[in-house]
Amino acid sequence: MSAALARSVSDLVGIRARQPEAIADAAARRARRPFLGDRGRLLVLAADHPGRGALAVGDRRLAMANRADLLERLCLALERPGVDGVLATADILEDLLLLGALEGRLALGSMNRGGLAGAAFELDDRFTGYRAQDLARLGFDAGKLLLRIDYDDPGSLETLHSAARVIDAMAAARLPVLVEPFVCRRDGGGRLRTDLSADAVARSIGIASGLAGTSAYTWLKVPVTEDPDDMARALEASTLPAVLLGGEVGADQDAVYEKWRKSLRLPTVQGLVVGRSLLYPPDGDVVAAVDTAVGLL
């Protein structure tokens, strides 16, 4: 962590302790921009993982547990040309607001973080984060919700119902909402597994697209299929605008970039929402990883 950020983190603690109203003031003053700019593409950094207890990056179990380190990586990435904004929970977005890192950038609020990673109730993705009225009050630009569906878990019906009502609320506020759908199941050991076959991704896209009383403000946040050549078939399930998510960090970063490159050519794909692959790249070079992703767009 740089000495400058160490001082800034100390300042953040002081502001939070003595002037909590400064957060709302910073949100009100923030310079805003259109959601989809002139370039017509989006590159958003995803940093909402800690709110679900998902702190691991590769074999580093607590990589995202160091908040000062995460903030430094985010500030570094947000300074790069072509980076549009960040998706995070309230605590992280508020830190970035106070640091002045969200000026002219998009602020996307993470809405459901109740399905804690590895918990018996992981699929119970309750809306414990931002509400539509919070995002509207703060002048933020969009929200995001996670929608994991297990056909063997009756609780998935409640998740679908809750997600639909949140999409309604976001549409009423005229705010885009990114829906991140997965078909998943538990293996013999009870661990949650995501199905990234083209059939499953297409099915999840169809389900997410049909939720709520309108899809006018709904975007899709989707994974690349197991076989990237099948991605076109999966995305044929909807005409909603889509962004690709980054997923786990792998040793072969070039292969990840190539998957994104192929999928970014598809007509509904409007950009990338990526976290760990850019903020914690295998070689540690955040700037190079971000600039490479910008180049893919």
Rank of each mutant, 00 (worst) to 15 (best):
G118L: 04
A169E: 13
G155F: 01
V179E: 00
F140P: 00
T128C: 10
R113S: 08
L160R: 02
G155H: 03
G139H: 03
G114K: 08
P181D: 04
L76E: 14
R105Q: 12
A171Q: 01
G100Q: 11
D69M: 12
L160F: 04
T159Q: 10
G115L: 03
G129V: 02
L78I: 05
A101D: 07
G109C: 08
P81I: 10
L102G: 03
L70T: 15
D84K: 08
G129E: 04
L135A: 06
D91N: 10
V86S: 02
C184S: 11
A132Q: 09
A171C: 11
V83T: 14
L96E: 06
D150I: 13
L157P: 00
R131H: 13
G129W: 08
G139T: 09
L87E: 03
D152E: 14
E122Y: 01
A117P: 00
L106E: 05
V166T: 13
M111S: 09
Y151K: 11
A120I: 07
A107I: 03
A172Y: 00
L76D: 07
V86H: 02
A107E: 03
G155W: 01
F127I: 10
R186K: 12
N66F: 00
L135D: 02
M64G: 00
E79N: 14
D152T: 15
E72T: 11
C75E: 14
G188S: 05
L74G: 07
